[in-house]
Design a protein around this nucleic acid. Structure first.
Lengths: 138, 138
DNA sequence: TCGTCTGTCACCGTTTTGGTAACAGTTAGG
DNA sequence: CCTAACTGTTACCAAAACGGTGACAGACGA
């Protein structure tokens, strides 16, 4: 799935914005909460903005806010925004091998990846950012 | 989930052993099919052996074979054998922050991880190595 | 005893990851 | 218009992860 911590940080970020829904929050405040630095976080925010999950305003007094109501943003939306690869990292089976197992492995792993992706999607779609805020943040 | 290709290689390995069920296969032959080198693969085999999925015999004519019938080994068994961390890599939210979101994030991510883990387990339990061989390998 | 195989360790180069600085561009407010 | 404050983006770095490889002791069949 996600071999880096960006999904985790993005969830944190979205919850922070949802908790302050309506306000513009600067990357410095957000970075302090997430536990990273503003510059790195702005990169993550850019990705979420391109996915239509976050709005930002530049200039003095600028910052980030949710692009839509927190109740309409699911974890799947966040996941898809960051998705760069499939759930499984796949090795390089020797497709030209005389071993029949190797020749079929690519298809097998492709299908397995799709099945896991679907399963994850169904699970992630069931939770919205608003759900998380309601359940966990007082 | 699995940030490396070992699950992918392990599935390949188990299918190869299942396809040759009953025979002892050397790490060289297996490595050739998987597309890696024997030494690295022996490390992976060791992990699967400790998990009780594979038997090995040392010495001349030695090699690996399935420890149980392929129909009794699920992908969850393979996954658990390799499991070193949780599905999500989690960042380090500033738990001591004055931001309430940060203070609750650890619990939130922990629960999310458990939910995803359960979802994956249910999915992976439904497929056995024998299923894969039957469906994909002629 | 000899040849062949596994088990394990140590080491290496590459890639990935997250952190950081720098700076141009944008905007509110005087 | 000018300044201060903020974002957007790039480039670069150190640390960690990853997979590959060689080496060698130990096990075992012949």
């Amino acid at each position: 799935m996600l071999s880096n911590t960006q999904f985790s940080m993005a969830v944190h970020l979205m919850c922070a914005l949802a908790w302050n829904e309506g306000k513009l929050i600067g990357s410095q405040d957000l970075a302090h909460s997430v536990g990273t630095n503003p510059s790195f976080l702005r990169g993550l925010i850019s990705v979420l903005r391109e996915a239509g999950l976050v709005d930002t305003r530049q200039g003095k007094g600028g910052g980030s806010t949710l692009a839509r109501p927190a109740g309409t943003i699911t974890l799947l939306d966040v996941y898809r925004a960051l998705e760069t690869s499939q759930p499984l990292k796949v090795h390089r089976p020797d497709c030209g091998s005389d071993c029949i197992v190797a020749r079929r492995m690519k298809n097998l792993l492709h299908d397995l990846n799709e099945k896991l992706e679907d399963t994850l999607a169904i699970e992630l779609k069931q939770t919205t950012v608003a759900d998380l805020v309601t359940e966990y943040i007082t």
